[in-house]
Measured scan of single mutants.
Amino acid sequence: DEVRLHVNGHTIEFRGIDEEIFKILEEAAKRGADEEELRRLAEKLLR
């Protein structure tokens, strides 16, 4: 299960996240989070 999030012209792939987590990451990206911040956030949410 892989999703792709487009951030500042880059595509970031995440594996094993559900739609709810994806929406949180998408919102963070809209607020200016970079790839590293998004990955840290995803790790926290998946715990």
Rank of each mutant, 00 (worst) to 15 (best):
R31V: 09
I12K: 00
A42T: 03
I17D: 05
L41Q: 03
K30N: 08
V3Y: 15
R4T: 10
E35G: 06
G32V: 04
E27F: 05
I17C: 05
F22I: 11
D34H: 10
L46S: 13
F14D: 05
A42K: 01
A33Q: 06
A28Y: 11
R40W: 09
A42L: 08
E26C: 13
E37G: 10
H10F: 03
K44F: 10
F22D: 02
R4W: 04
D18A: 05
D1F: 15
L45H: 08
I17R: 01
E37W: 11
E13R: 04
K44Q: 13
V3Q: 15
R47A: 14
K30H: 11
R47K: 12
R47E: 14
E43N: 08
I21E: 08
E13D: 13
L41K: 02
N8M: 01
K30V: 09
E2G: 11
E27M: 12
G16Q: 03
D34K: 10
A33K: 06
A28K: 07
R31W: 11
G32L: 04
A33S: 09
K23T: 09
E20L: 09
L25R: 00
L46C: 07
E35M: 09
V3G: 07
R15I: 15
I24H: 08
E35I: 14
G32R: 01
D18M: 03
E13V: 12
L45A: 08
E19V: 07
E27D: 10
T11E: 15
L46P: 05
I12N: 02
L38G: 00
L46N: 07
K44I: 13
G16F: 02
E13L: 04
I24W: 07
A29W: 09
E2A: 09
E35F: 10
R15S: 15
R4I: 15
I21H: 11
L46V: 14
E43C: 06
K23P: 05
H6Y: 00
K30R: 10
K30L: 09
H10Q: 14
V7H: 03
E2K: 15
G32F: 04
L41T: 06
A29V: 12
R40G: 13
A28P: 00
L5F: 02
G16A: 02
L46F: 04
G32T: 03
T11L: 07
A42F: 05
A33E: 05
R40Y: 09
E36L: 10
H10A: 09
E36W: 12
G9Y: 00
G16C: 10
L41V: 06
H10T: 13
E19P: 07
I12R: 00
E43D: 12
I24N: 05
E2P: 11
R15F: 15
I21Q: 15
D34V: 09
K44E: 14
T11K: 04
I17H: 02
F22R: 04
H6G: 05
L25K: 00
E27C: 10
G32Q: 02
D18R: 01
V3E: 04
I17E: 05
V7L: 07
E36H: 14
A33T: 07
E36T: 12
K30C: 09
R40K: 13
I24M: 10
L41I: 11
H10V: 15
A29S: 07
L46A: 10
N8I: 01
I24S: 07
G16N: 07
E37K: 09
F14A: 08
I12Y: 00
R39M: 11
A33Y: 10
E26A: 09
I17G: 04
I21S: 14
A42M: 05
E26H: 08
R39W: 08
E36G: 13
G9C: 04
L25Y: 01
D1E: 10
E20H: 12
R47M: 13
E36I: 14
E35C: 05
R39S: 05
R40L: 12
T11S: 06
F22N: 02
R39A: 04
K23A: 11
L25P: 00
R4A: 05
E26N: 06
T11V: 13
L25N: 00
N8E: 05
V7F: 02
A29I: 11
E27Y: 06
R47V: 13
R4L: 12
A29L: 12
K44M: 13
K23M: 09
F22S: 04
I21D: 14
E13Q: 01
E35A: 09
H10M: 13
E27A: 09
E20S: 07
R47G: 14
L25G: 00
V7K: 01
D34Q: 14
F14L: 13
D34C: 06
E20F: 11
L45N: 04
I12Q: 01
E27L: 12
L38E: 00
I17A: 05
D1K: 14
V7A: 04
F22L: 10
D1P: 12
H6F: 00
I17S: 06
R15A: 14
R4V: 12
G16Y: 03
V3F: 15
E13T: 04
E35T: 07
L41Y: 05
E35Y: 11
E35R: 02
L45M: 10
R31M: 12
E26D: 08
E20M: 08
R15C: 08
F22W: 05
I17N: 03
E2F: 14
V3A: 08
K30E: 08
I24F: 09
E13N: 02
A28C: 05
G9M: 02
I12E: 06
E2N: 12
E19C: 06
I21R: 05
E26P: 00
H6W: 00
R47W: 06
K44P: 01
E20A: 11
E43M: 04
K44Y: 13
D34M: 12
E37S: 13
A42S: 05
I12C: 03
A28M: 12
D34R: 07
E43A: 08
E27V: 09
A33P: 02
E27H: 11
L5T: 02
D18G: 12
D18I: 04
E27S: 10
L38T: 01
R15P: 15
N8C: 05
E20N: 10
I24P: 01
R47S: 13
N8V: 02
H10C: 04
E36D: 12
R15Y: 15
G32I: 03
A42G: 05
I17T: 06
E35D: 05
E19D: 11
H10K: 15
D1A: 13
D18Q: 04
R40M: 10
E26V: 14
E27R: 10
D1R: 15
N8S: 05
G9A: 02
E2R: 09
E20R: 09
R40E: 13
T11C: 06
R39I: 14
D34L: 12
D34F: 10
F14W: 01
I17L: 08
V7R: 01
R15D: 15
E19M: 09
L38Y: 01
F22V: 10
